[in-house]
Each structure stands twice: as C-alpha cells, then as structure tokens.
C-alpha cells in the first residue's frame, strides 16, 4: 500500500488543457437547440459503437480517458447502454453485418441525441470503401452531426469532435 500511495503522489496530476471546438468538423447544421446543448456541455454521456473498424480508433478512444486527456474531468463519460446516452461515438466503415445493430442502437438512444463519426473510415468508408460486406461511411446508415478524420484520429482530435458537437455555433 505504501508503494501504491507513494506512486500516486510522485506521479502527480498529468492532465493537460482540452482542445477547442472546430466548426470545420461539422457535417450537418446544428439540429439541437442551444438550451439543450448547454445541458449537454455540463454532463454528456456517450455510447461508443464499433460498427466495423480495424480497432485502431478504439485504442485512441480508450486513451481519451488516460490521465493526460482526462475526458471524464470535463463531465463527459462513457456509458454501458445507448438508453443512457446523449451521444453515439461511431467508428469504422459500417459493415453490413453491423448495419441493423447500429440502427437499433441509434433508435434506442433517446432524443435529443448527437452522433459523432470517428476516423477516416467513419468519415468516408476509408480504405475498405463500399462493397458486398461494407456500407462505407457512417452517414450512409444513420445521421451524423460531426465527423472526425484521422487514421486513427488522436485523442485530442476525438475530444475536439465531441466538444464541437456540443458547442454552440460561434
């Protein structure tokens, strides 16, 4: 226990400043009223859906909660069910085998809701494209508010996408 406590103290607080929203990431015009966004800005819950990624984007979504980025410190947390979520964070080209599951997850998320597509594949279908097995970009299957490019996008870019979705347009 001594080593554990000592290590916590020696490590100190590593958290860095969060990124600013970036309007260029927005795909569709704001669908939600400003008052609702103000609520989300204080306590946002996210359900992540991997709709067919290579797992690279998931690695970086994990890293958003490491001590450097500390996403939860901004009042933003991941939840276990779409029914508890305000936002879906969707990765991958949407494989045809995940198409129904993604739509059902979208439907299970209560309105008002936001969708952020993560990664080059989520934005455009990426290297996998559209095929017998892939529906391509996320917006081919469910409506998308903000799309974050990158292969995979860095944790800062992912956070920026999330913060853009819940920010009012300047």
């Amino acid at each position: 226990m001594y080593h554990l406590l000592k290590q916590i103290i020696v490590t100190g607080i590593k958290t860095e400043a969060p990124p600013q929203p970036d309007e260029t990431l927005r795909v569709t015009a704001e669908r939600l009223r400003a008052e609702i966004l103000d609520y989300f800005a204080g306590a946002l819950t996210i359900r992540h859906v991997d709709a067919g990624s290579c797992n690279g984007c998931e690695l970086e979504i994990h890293m958003c909660n490491n001590p450097y980025y500390n996403l939860e410190g901004l009042g933003i947390k991941f939840v276990a069910s779409p029914r508890h979520a305000d936002m879906l964070l969707v990765t991958g080209p949407v494989s045809r085998h995940m198409e129904v599951a993604l739509k059902r997850t979208y439907d299970a998320t209560p309105d008002p809701k936001l969708v952020v597509a993560i990664g080059d594949c989520g934005c455009t279908g990426g290297i996998f494209g559209e095929s017998y097995a892939s529906c391509g970009r996320v917006s081919n299957v469910i409506p998308v508010d903000v799309a974050v490019p990158g292969c995979p996008p860095t944790p800062l870019a992912i956070m920026q996408g999330i913060l853009t979705a819940i920010s009012r347009k300047a």
């Binding site: 991997d50 067919g52 990624s53 991958g92 080209p93 494989s95 085998h97 995940m98 599951a101 290297i127 996998f128 494209g129 095929s131 017998y132 097995a133 892939s134």
Partner: peptide
C-alpha cells in the same frame, strides 16, 4: 462472430 466482416480478402 463475423459482425466485422468487411470484405478485406476481396479488397
């Protein structure tokens, strides 16, 4: 399994 089948071999 198979939910992530996205046609890699064909690609």
């Amino acid at each position: 399994l198979g939910y992530k089948h996205k046609g890699i071999e064909k690609r």
